[in-house]
């Protein structure tokens, strides 16, 4: 599914963002990526999206290797991934439904199908009645739900979420996490980066991978990295 083997990422100005990361995310799992800001959580997500390539090591996502990536592979790969972000990344000048439809338009789907499907997806995230609302008319939690509906539009095999509850109050956060659990229960892999340890603690059955200064320092699945000394 997703496999990072000896992955390092070095930025020319800031140095190592990731250092020799080995991580395997099997199909259907739910993984929390935790750590302080700057620990490398977002970098891992960006690598999985193939928005950037590792400086060293290899990354495999659904059979696509970072070592043999062609530019034209990237859009195809991204259609198989759903992404949600702390800042939602919705287009302000479009309604909730149009925002969801947007992800379908880029695949060249038929217009008659797009509307139908967008409405159904909004129903799935509990926003059936809010399709015609613009982002500014929605609460934070609702915006994130729209973003998740968009992420699910192309029936991805994995959902990547970068601090999706970072801008939400506790109730809304819980709602989003419930939604993720439901999505995961239906067989989709979920990788969620968060620094909200409270939230992680509330779900002890899920795997937790902790990063610090670009290195994996804890993995509840067993491969704990031994600290030097």
């Amino acid at each position: 599914m997703i496999k990072l083997t000896g992955v390092s990422k070095v930025y020319p100005r800031t140095g190592y963002a990731l250092r020799n990361v080995n991580l395997h995310v099997p199909k259907g799992s739910f993984v929390f990526l935790t750590g302080h800001s700057g620990a490398g959580k977002s970098t891992i997500l960006r690598l999985i999206q193939m928005a950037e390539l590792p400086t060293e090591g290899e990354l495999r996502v659904s059979g696509t290797s970072s070592a043999r990536l062609r530019r034209s592979d990237v859009p195809k790969l991204r259609r198989k991934m759903g992404m949600a972000f702390q800042d939602f990344r919705l287009l302000k000048d479009r309604t909730a439904e149009e925002n969801v439809a947007f992800a379908l338009e880029v695949t060249g789907a038929r217009r008659s199908l797009i509307r139908q499907r967008a409405a159904r997806l909004l129903g799935k995230v509990g926003l059936a009645a809010r399709g015609q609302a613009f982002p500014e008319e929605l609460s934070g939690g609702e915006k994130q739900r729209v973003a998740i509906a968009r992420a699910l539009a192309n029936e991805p095999f994995i959902l990547l979420a970068d601090e999706p509850t970072g801008n939400l109050d506790e109730r809304a956060s819980r709602g989003i996490l419930d939604l993720f659990r439901e999505i995961n229960a239906n067989g989709m892999t979920v990788v969620m980066a968060t620094h909200d340890l409270e939230l992680v603690r509330r779900h002890p059955s899920y795997r937790v991978v902790e990063l610090s200064a670009g290195e994996v320092v804890f993995d509840s699945a067993g491969t704990v990295r031994e600290e030097a000394g």
Partner: peptide, 16 residues
């Protein structure tokens, strides 16, 4: 720019 970024995010090809 934002629209372009989101288009890329959801898997739009460069040509599209």
């Amino acid at each position: 720019r934002e629209e372009i970024e989101i288009m890329r995010l959801v898997g739009a090809t460069d040509g599209f």
